[in-house]
């Protein structure tokens, strides 16, 4: 389909509801990556992403083509993630290992045809470590990094999503990366 997001949303607003599926297909992977990294639990991430799409769909009348659908969706997702984290902090965390829940295992098994078990374990460990390190960064820097690397947003989109300036978005990514690289070096030094 060659329609851009704004054109699709216009048609969805006009009643062509099935077109919304196209937007879901376009963004679900990157949204899940970000939510997964922010929430640490695959099941929660899926719920939040699904809720973000449903909220955008339910509030489709408020969408305006003067702003980007993509930015709107990311803003909704980040806000829902924050809300989810607040709720989590009030509830006991599930006992299961976040990296190895059923959904994660399903993903790992799917890739097992092409990769060795060892490399997958290493990759999984890396991912888990990254999630842990990002949680140690200031939230704004960590979110900016997630949006840049998992969401693959441009800096101006990050700025709009996080309601900051373009330079602010770049500084968040730069400082976040520097801190992250420092953390990695320090931890690697500790383990050797």
């Amino acid at each position: 389909m060659n329609l851009d997001d704004a054109q699709i949303m216009k048609r969805v607003q006009g009643g062509q509801l099935p077109l919304f599926d196209e937007l879901v297909l376009r963004y679900q992977e990157s949204l899940i990556r970000v939510a997964r990294s922010k929430l640490g639990e695959a099941a929660w991430a899926e719920d939040v992403v699904q809720e973000a799409f449903l909220a955008a769909f339910a509030a489709r009348a408020t969408y305006d083509c003067r702003f980007s659908f993509r930015t709107w969706l990311w803003t909704i997702l980040l806000n829902l993630c924050r809300r989810q984290l607040k709720q989590q902090s009030r509830r006991p965390r599930p006992v299961s290992d976040p990296a190895m829940n059923s959904a994660a295992i399903a993903g790992v098994v799917e890739r097992a045809n092409h990769e060795t078990g060892l490399s997958l374990l290493l990759a999984s460990e890396q991912t888990q470590l990254l999630t842990q390190y990002l949680n140690e960064l200031p939230e704004a820097q960590a979110d900016a990094l997630r949006l840049r690397f998992f969401g693959e947003l441009k800096f101006d989109e990050i700025a709009r999503t996080m309601n900051c300036s373009l330079n602010g978005a770049k500084m968040r990514v730069r400082n976040g990366l520097l801190k992250l690289a420092h953390l990695i070096r320090v931890r690697e030094g500790d383990t050797q």
Binding site: D21, R36, Q50, A123
Partner: peptide, 25 residues
């Protein structure tokens, strides 16, 4: 090191079982 970690995570982060169809919407 940070770039390497992100690249690895993007390639290997399990996506679970997405997700939504128009019927859900």
């Amino acid at each position: 090191p940070a770039f390497g970690m992100f690249d690895s995570a993007v390639e290997n982060l399990p996506l679970g079982t997405p997700i939504l169809s128009q019927q859900d919407a």
